[in-house]
Design a protein around this nucleic acid. Sequence first.
DNA 1: TTCAGCTTTTGTCCTTGACAAAAATAGATC
DNA 2: GATCTATTTTTGTCAAGGACAAAAGCTGAA
Lengths: 312, 312
Amino acid sequence: MPVQYPIRAVAKLTGITVDTLRAWERRYKAVIPDRVSRGRLYSDADVRRLLLLKTALECGHSIGRVASLPDAELQELARASFPSSPVLRTQPAARVDLTELSKLRRAIEALDSTTINDEFSRLALFLSPTELVHKVVLPLMRLAGENWENGIYQIAQEHLLSACVRNLMGGLVRLQSRSGGVARLLLATPPEELHEFGILSAAMLALEHGFQVDYLGPNLPAREILAAAALRSPDVVVLGVLKLNATPAVQRDVDLLASGLPASTELWLGGSGAADVANGAARTGVFVLEDLVQFELHLARWKSTHLQGADA
Amino acid sequence: MPVQYPIRAVAKLTGITVDTLRAWERRYKAVIPDRVSRGRLYSDADVRRLLLLKTALECGHSIGRVASLPDAELQELARASFPSSPVLRTQPAARVDLTELSKLRRAIEALDSTTINDEFSRLALFLSPTELVHKVVLPLMRLAGENWENGIYQIAQEHLLSACVRNLMGGLVRLQSRSGGVARLLLATPPEELHEFGILSAAMLALEHGFQVDYLGPNLPAREILAAAALRSPDVVVLGVLKLNATPAVQRDVDLLASGLPASTELWLGGSGAADVANGAARTGVFVLEDLVQFELHLARWKSTHLQGADA
DNA sequence: TTCAGCTTTTGTCCTTGACAAAAATAGATC
DNA sequence: GATCTATTTTTGTCAAGGACAAAAGCTGAA
């Protein structure tokens, strides 16, 4: 059941004027939407193609040249982000250029949310979700984390980047939700945690490994997390605990979770402060994962032990 | 020297489609812009009149009835129906929205972010930004706000809904970013504020009115906001101050902003606690806007007085 | 009153033609 | 060969008027 969009919706979706959409069709037959008695109906594939065409234009090509190219070539073209002449294209562009990241970095520093979102969606056009996570999002977040520690970034930058990444996450969630999902994870941090990056990165990684993710965000008291767990009945609750010296309040929150969650639900504690608070929580199914590498390993292990069949 | 706008700029400025603008002129001669060799040129007065017509429509009048009224009567008409909570007016509205909203409400209660995002983006295709804001986002937020006070909703629900609305905003930002926008707004709340809803709604409304919006999110100390303002050099800084009894800390933050911002930057304080903290801030360009209705009015006023800049 | 049917209103989409700003090309001069 | 100007092509945007369907308004009957 192919979803179809009327022209105005496509204009919204792609940011291309209705005038231009019609002109492209009339002159170059860039896309040929279905027609009903009154009006055009664009398919998902049409919209994707239009987005590709748009990025090609942004790379300096002219519509007349690229309008009739097949989709595959357009995709390739989008990879070559630089407006160099198509002939001189020397890079197979298998990986993301450093300049891409520096462009994003500058946008973050300048609090320029428009550019960040634009770049993200551009990259999402030709990177697989896996690549997107590993080559763009995680490096950026690591970088941001470091800069934060060095006092270069400020809260505003963290908020902004987090918001944009969550944006992206929304897209990934939609892709993932089709294939059933390996298992359901619920992620949050208790109050008093300074950063959202860690738990957000974890959420991205889990998504990318095919898990269903409920990302509740930072700053949630244990009572709330328990209530959410009751609603969503996840297989695992992941708690980000970054602080090294846990306050009694945080300790109590962790204990509350450990004892309040049903026995069938595992509790994973992530972050450098995780080991400290885990000691108090005597309970099976509690795991300490000090960094994202351990977290990812654990995800893989979980998959292999809890799944017999292969997944997509 | 009368600045004049081409039709597309007017469409962006007023939120009225180019088709509709032409139809109104053709059928009712609602406004008669100047003509040059090619295309219409609307004056500031024309734009103001169109804005008045639009508010008249939003008050339930039909275009055929009001199109030929003189400006003064339109103004009267808008004033007459505005003070009685124009947006919140329990309209006959659409019955469809009720089922839509209840579906969304269930999704929020169940913390089902996938469904929320899907519904939002689906609605965004068929509703104009105006409708989206007034008929979906604001009612939901109001509902959520109430339920929060009654203890039905919890922090998790607020976080989730805020995140999804921000997602939506991201989409609007991209659409709006094209033609420079009317003016640049920077929105945030100081620390200790409980809710993000108010300032988030304000951001949506501003976007919908064609302003460029930098949404920094909740919980930002004045120092950060000042730093961000230095980076983005906005025309207006909007600060959400919901709490009724301002703590000294909040008061100090507001004072810091009032004195730290350049003279050319206005400071708008929104929320029920705004009046309290504004007293201390002796400075021109400080405005107190107690609710979203006032905020929207102020936006419209700002547009009609400051409309003179060039556009792309 | 309420409700089914009819009429008017009104927003949106269509097509074709046109124009101007920008880009590309060609030609001329140093 | 390089630089500059003039001409052609490309391409986004606007216009006019016709058309249609969903919504709103209106009618008369139950």
